[in-house]
Design a protein around this nucleic acid. Sequence first.
DNA 1: ACAGGCATGTAAATAGTTACATGATTCG
DNA 2: CGAATCATGTAACTATTTACATGCCTGT
Lengths: 181, 181
Amino acid sequence: MELSATAYVILGMVFREPRSGYEIKAAVDNSTRFFWAASYGQIYPELKRLSEAGLVEGADAPTGERRRTVYAITGAGRTELRDWLRQPPATAEMREEGLLKLFFADALAPDEAIEILRAMREHRLDLSERLRGLESAKAEMEDPYPLMVLRGGIEFNEWFAGWCERMEAQLLEPAPQKRSS
Amino acid sequence: MELSATAYVILGMVFREPRSGYEIKAAVDNSTRFFWAASYGQIYPELKRLSEAGLVEGADAPTGERRRTVYAITGAGRTELRDWLRQPPATAEMREEGLLKLFFADALAPDEAIEILRAMREHRLDLSERLRGLESAKAEMEDPYPLMVLRGGIEFNEWFAGWCERMEAQLLEPAPQKRSS
DNA sequence: ACAGGCATGTAAATAGTTACATGATTCG
DNA sequence: CGAATCATGTAACTATTTACATGCCTGT
């Protein structure tokens, strides 16, 4: 069975409890989004495919007149998810515009290069703040892995901010003089 | 002027010296690829667009009978690149399948979760080794930023590997007992 | 002679975002 | 009542990868 990455995100998100497409999107947005995103344009069509493949099962669960479908994982879906989890992770990518700009910063004045680092640092500090805001909610869960990943995210963003700070300092330092004695 | 991200990668890559599409690809592959990739399918069409927009200029530079075009940045291209470099970096994304799997690892046995971390750690160590292999080449350059970014990449991958190691150890530890005294 | 690297390009497929359309419910 | 949020979906667009096609040049 050849499934998209989004398919596995969905399977993972309905593994513990049935969820609607909207709820899956919300769950992704305050957890995996930071290392694996998914939009409505991916989620709804994928739910239909997974349903046709028998890996999830939809059930009507309207709130009043507002139609709503919650999807539960099936036995086959659970098997599929576990099989995938056991494969060694394949993709690991980063797209960091700040590093790209820093890479080309020789085209700018030195103080402008420092400005790139400062902006990256601020962004990473913002992110770690936001992740900290999610921490208490996850701290109560029985499942320990989301919290582990979240704390990893916080540590990473702080590490990155620290690196930016060190590089800013390095660029401010007077260039080391080459002397013979 | 609305340009794609690939356009700026190209402008940056031809800023210091004219390069062919093939050389741009090679340069990307052992530098920015780790945080910003580009394929032939993006580079060649984009070179044509940039050329039409007057931001780069192609010149025939065949090697024997083998046709070859090297592109040099124009004054307008330099201005465009610098304008972009001065904008605060907008996109910063990560797609890390290992973290996604770890996030869902509750569907597995504990030793299988450790295996995910071990695979991620190995991958990051491999990467930092490969980046170290590129270090000597960049150490001689006059332009200091590529080396700074490269060393950042090495440090990041080592930090990440260390985090994986710490998390592996945490999962191996006996669960802390809740005692009153 | 053949493999591997240099060199340019396109076509097709896949992935992903964004914007839009529609309508119900809840809270202030 | 109006805004925000719940809820589902599609269309259009943009981005990106992969595979393929073509052909020259260099070293063994």
